[in-house]
Design a protein around this nucleic acid. Structure first.
Lengths: 222, 222
DNA sequence: TCAATTTATGACTTATGGTCATTAAAACGT
DNA sequence: ACGTTTTAATGACCATAAGTCATAAATTGA
């Protein structure tokens, strides 16, 4: 009899419903001001039940984080499927990241938030499903980026003196740093304090920076 | 009579002593696991007294953040005093940032932590001394970086097609992104998941990335 | 010396993450 | 169909920690 399987499915669905509810509340009230009671109410369950599905609040956050990562990974993967050169993929990645941070601001907040969680808090859930899955998604993204650089070196659009995996990590780190800078200085513009207070559009900053990186890695011989 | 002045000095000193104590505890126990009671005990004061000097815990964190920023600003400023070219300054900045993140890891944790605080939590202390001072220090740092790029364009070591203020912001954002990546993947090394699991040293990643950026901005005609 | 002002205290309030004994429901064997 | 066992859900309860406030101590100034 398939009772066990059905129960497993039901359990999965319930977990998912909880994440749905949590997401709604977190996106509405902000991460820090949302309580487990809020989430329980939104999920139409008692608080205790939440803890049957998630070890603690952080694991619930990680589950949402994972949704964001899954979304982003799919977008990144899609770039690799395009009939373009490796170098063009690099530019496309930058656009994709920037786009994602704009259109899925809520998930992007989770990225920023989760990356600043300290190890001590993370430890109790490190071996749990949510964390493992997030790490896996993170690795997936870096792998896709690495592939693009490999392809670029292969097709001759990127200088072959570079290590693709290293470039991938540098690209991701630098781009996220820039996006986070504009996230921190909210409202999408950053004020340069020197001389007259010039205001830069975050989009320009990122695009410009990408031009710079592409300039540095592209194979001149083409 | 100078009673008022003396009292002002004493108040200043007490505030400083509290930050000293808080720093000790935060550095020892970690930011998240330190309570106001812990700090009160370390400062040999009652908890209530802490709130006479700081509006809330976050403002106390901001005060420590400010100390870190002050330290870093001094190091950055020192680079500008060296008899070197603008381009060399850019490299020196990168080294300084990396060095700081290693030698003052505690303060660096504060940078990472404070940058991920959401606006709602920050709002109540935004107009307070600590936050204002932190913003000012942040601006100072960007100004110094901008100066270096200006000098580089002036002395011909950096291409004149760039906007120095924009470069400064990009440089800082990207570098911090990379450092944070290695901070997140603790223990100073980052594992690349693609192909065989290659491990990169965070120091190499940053240095290498800096070479790349310098390559892109340096004036070839020299 | 004493009233006024400033500074310090710690018990108390409130908020919230997390637990657990109890209850309800479902599954299963007969 | 019925009683037993297993699983799921509940919400009152607990522990912790931020922040408050009436009270007390200390300092100042006349």
């Amino acid at each position: 009899m398939g009772t066990a399987e059905r129960k497993e499915r039901e359990k999965e669905k319930r977990r998912n419903d909880i994440v749905d509810a949590a997401e709604r509340v977190f996106f509405l009230k902000g991460i820090d001001s949302t309580t487990m009671d809020d989430i329980a109410e939104a999920a139409e369950l008692s608080k205790g039940t939440l803890y049957l599905y998630f070890r603690n609040k952080l694991e619930l956050l990680a589950a949402i984080h994972h949704r964001g990562l899954t979304l982003l990974t799919a977008l990144i993967a899609e770039v690799l499927a395009r009939p373009i050169t490796g170098l063009e993929m690099v530019r496309a990645f930058s656009n994709t990241l920037e786009d994602f941070s704009k259109k899925n601001e809520n998930y992007y907040h989770f990225f920023v938030h989760m990356e600043s969680v300290d190890m001590a808090s993370l430890e109790p859930i490190m071996d749990g499903w949510a964390c493992q899955a997030c790490n896996q998604k993170g690795n997936e993204i870096i792998t896709y980026l690495t592939r693009a650089f490999q392809i670029g070196i292969q097709d001759g659009t990127i200088k072959d003196k570079f290590n693709p995996a290293m470039l991938a990590i540098q690209f991701l780190g630098a781009t996220r740093g820039l996006i986070q800078l504009s996230y921190f200085h909210r409202s999408g513009h950053i004020v340069a304090p020197s001389l007259e207070n010039i205001t830069f559009d975050a989009r320009d900053l990122l695009r410009n920076f990408n031009d710079l990186m592409i300039e540095a890695i592209k194979n001149e011989k083409i």
